[in-house]
C-alpha cells in the first residue's frame, strides 16, 4: 500500500514537472511563432508580389524574359537540411522544400522555353559528380512587405558559401515520369527543372554541403513568396 502511494506521488510529481516543461516549451514557442508570423504590411516596393497568386501561380513575361511563380515558405527547413529549393505542392517532394510552389513543374518548364531558355539535359541518374548545364538564370524572391527583390541565395544558408549558378537543367521527361515536383534544386539534379550548378550532382547526398532556409531573411511559415527566374 505504501509502495503504491509512493509510486502515485512520484507519478504526479513527474506529471507536474512535465506539465511545467511542456507549457514553457510550447507556450513560449507559440508566442514567438505568433510574433514572427504576423502578416507584413504591403508596400509599393515589391513589384512582383502581386503578379502571381494561388489562382494564377505562373506568370511569363517574354519581353523581360522572366518567369514568376507563387510559393509559400516551409519553416521546417529553417531547422532541418534539404536539397530542395522550390517544389510543386502536388509533387512527391512537396513537403521537402524551403518553398512550396503552386505552379506545376511541367508548366514551369514550358514557361522557361517560352522565354527562350535552353535546357541542359546533360544529367541522368548515373552522372554523379557532373554539374547541370543549360541557360543561366538569375533567381530572386520577394513578398508583400519585403520592398525589394532579394537574391534567392540570400534566403538559403549554404554551408560551403559558394556563389550560386542557377541553370535550366531541363529533365522534362524524368520530371513528368517521376513527378517529384522539383522546380529548383539546390545542387545539380537529374530530375529538377532548374539546378544550382555550383554544386555537382550528389553533393548533398554525399554530405559535402547542407542547405537550410535563412530564418533571418525569410518571412514566417506559410507566407506567400514570389520567386522570379530571369534569363541572363
Amino acid at each position: 500500500m505504501k509502495r503504491s502511494s509512493k509510486r502515485g506521488t512520484l507519478t504526479i510529481a513527474v506529471a507536474a514537472l512535465l506539465a511545467l516543461a511542456a507549457m514553457i516549451l510550447l507556450a513560449g514557442c507559440s508566442s514567438k511563432q505568433q510574433a514572427s508570423s504576423a502578416p507584413p504590411s504591403n508596400t509599393a516596393g515589391s513589384p512582383a508580389s502581386n503578379s502571381v497568386s494561388k489562382d494564377n501561380p505562373l506568370a511569363v513575361d517574354k519581353d523581360a524574359k522572366t518567369v514568376q511563380i507563387y510559393t509559400e515558405v516551409n519553416a521546417k527547413y529553417f531547422v532541418e537540411p534539404t536539397r530542395h529549393g522550390v517544389v510543386f505542392k502536388d509533387g512527391k517532394n512537396a513537403s521537402m522544400a524551403v518553398f512550396k510552389a503552386w505552379a506545376n513543374q511541367n508548366d514551369f518548364y514550358n514557361a522557361l522555353i517560352a522565354i527562350g531558355a535552353q535546357p541542359g539535359n546533360n544529367l541522368d541518374l548515373k552522372t554523379a559528380g557532373k554539374s547541370a548545364e543549360g541557360s543561366p538564370l538569375d533567381v530572386t524572391i520577394t513578398w508583400a512587405g519585403a520592398g525589394k527583390e532579394i537574391p534567392f541565395n540570400d534566403a538559403i544558408i549554404d554551408t560551403q558559401h559558394k556563389t550560386p549558378d542557377y541553370r535550366f537543367g531541363g529533365n522534362q521527361d524524368r520530371a513528368k515520369t517521376i513527378n517529384t515536383g522539383c522546380i529548383l534544386c539546390l545542387d545539380s539534379c537529374p530530375v529538377g527543372i532548374t539546378s544550382n550548378a555550383a554544386y555537382p550532382q550528389g553533393s548533398f547526398d554525399g554530405k559535402k554541403v547542407e542547405f537550410r532556409g535563412n530564418k533571418d531573411v525569410l518571412p514566417a511559415d506559410g507566407t506567400p513568396v514570389t520567386v522570379t527566374f530571369k534569363l541572363k
Binding site: 516549451l25 514557442c29 511563432q33 519553416a75 529553417f78 530564418k215
Partner: peptide
C-alpha cells in the same frame, strides 16, 4: 530539445510541422 539544440523557436517549428 536535443534535435533543436534548445532553440525554442526551432522547437515550435519542428513540433508543429
Amino acid at each position: 530539445l536535443v534535435s533543436t539544440g534548445g532553440n525554442l523557436a526551432f522547437a515550435a517549428i519542428i513540433v508543429g510541422v
